[in-house]
């Protein structure tokens, strides 16, 4: 009896390190199961990410070894680089406009498709996901918004008498931002949208039946009382994907409008990083730019989780 009590006490006094070790031994089956993923993840993602982080504090031109310059890059970014300030402004406006709109579109369309009968679901999911599926087909928008009268938007708007002359959709600073937003929204039904579709597919039918018995009367009530509560994890996934795509936008603007765009109207943080990283080869400075973006995205992610957590958890 006494001996048993003794070991109990030993158990409690056992230090944390040994406890952890024992727990790790106990869970070796779990470690083994996730080993293939995490070995590859460590080598090809984690190590390169960790190696990339300090580059923002260096001067690095890919020819000479990186040179430590402390916070110099960040001083230049925020105090001297006016284009960067414009880029931050554009990125934030862009994210605030397209982020919520495409998130709501993703959910709304995923849900409306779910109300359709069988085969139509596949058809509509395909149509809405097609822009993402088709890769870089967004360059076709160049044909539509081309500035001369050959441009489809110009040709047809003139023909209908809405415009009286060709508009420079892709080079006039007044239109660029709007055009880029339209194209970005067009291709925003991506990973988040599909995961929401899959999530809706997995809600057990008996829950709808139970809700109907309990007096849920219309589609709206069913959506709010049955569907949304069952979709928490998918909605969070879609939100994170939305943050990533809204804040890292830049390719669309860079490809469609001239680079750099007129008055930097389509210049985002990613465009700026592309400019310094892939054209000027000032990799240190480009890393500093990406470092700032990383910080902004972590903040946005934290905020969204707080916001969604209030409704979903």
């Amino acid at each position: 009896m006494a001996a048993q009590a003794n070991t109990e006490i030993l158990h409690i006094e056992d230090n944390k390190f040994r406890y952890t070790l024992r727990e790790m031994k106990r869970s070796r089956g779990l470690y083994l199961l996730m080993a293939p993923f995490f070995i590859l993840f460590t080598i090809f993602t984690f190590v390169p990410v960790v190696m990339s982080l300090p580059m923002g504090f260096t001067n690095f031109n890919m020819v000479q070894l990186p040179q430590w310059v402390g916070l110099d890059n960040f001083y230049v970014l925020f105090l001297e680089d006016e284009v960067f300030l414009k880029a931050i402004q554009n990125t934030l406006i862009f994210a605030v406009v397209t982020g919520p709109i495409s998130y709501i579109l993703c959910f709304l369309l995923a849900w409306l498709i779910n109300e359709m009968p069988g085969a139509l679901k596949t058809v509509f999911t395909f149509i809405f996901y097609a822009p993402t599926l088709a890769g870089n087909i967004y360059t076709t928008w160049q044909l539509i918004f081309s500035g001369d009268t050959y441009g489809i938007a110009n040709a047809y708007l003139i023909k209908l008498g809405i415009l009286n002359g060709a508009r420079q959709w892709l080079t006039d600073a007044n239109y660029i931002f709007g055009v880029v937003i339209v194209v970005q929204l067009w291709m925003s039904l991506g990973a988040g949208f599909l995961s929401l579709r899959a999530g809706l597919q997995g809600i057990p039918r008996d829950r709808y039946e139970a809700a109907a018995v309990e007096g849920v009367k219309n589609r709206m009530q069913e959506l709010l009382m049955v569907t949304v509560p069952a979709m928490g994890p998918q909605m969070l996934f879609a939100a994170v994907m939305q943050i990533v795509s809204s804040f890292t936008a830049g390719d669309v603007g860079r490809t469609l409008t001239a680079f750099p765009s007129t008055d930097y109207a389509a210049h985002t943080i990613m465009t700026h990083a592309y400019d310094y990283g892939s054209i000027r080869f000032e990799m240190g400075y480009a890393s500093a730019i990406c470092f700032v973006l990383f910080g902004v995205m972590i903040l946005a992610n934290w905020g969204i989780k707080k916001l969604l957590g209030r409704y979903l958890d």
């Binding site: 779990l30 990339s52 890292t248 890393s287 990383f294």
Partner: peptide, 27 residues
């Protein structure tokens, strides 16, 4: 699963998801 290090791994995945950098390909 429940095991030591779970929180750290979840965090690493989340941060990696948000990370973009123009020097990543060099590394």
């Amino acid at each position: 699963g429940e095991f030591p290090g779970k929180r750290a791994l979840n965090k690493a995945i989340e941060l990696a998801l948000l990370f973009t950098s123009s020097v990543m390909f060099i590394m």
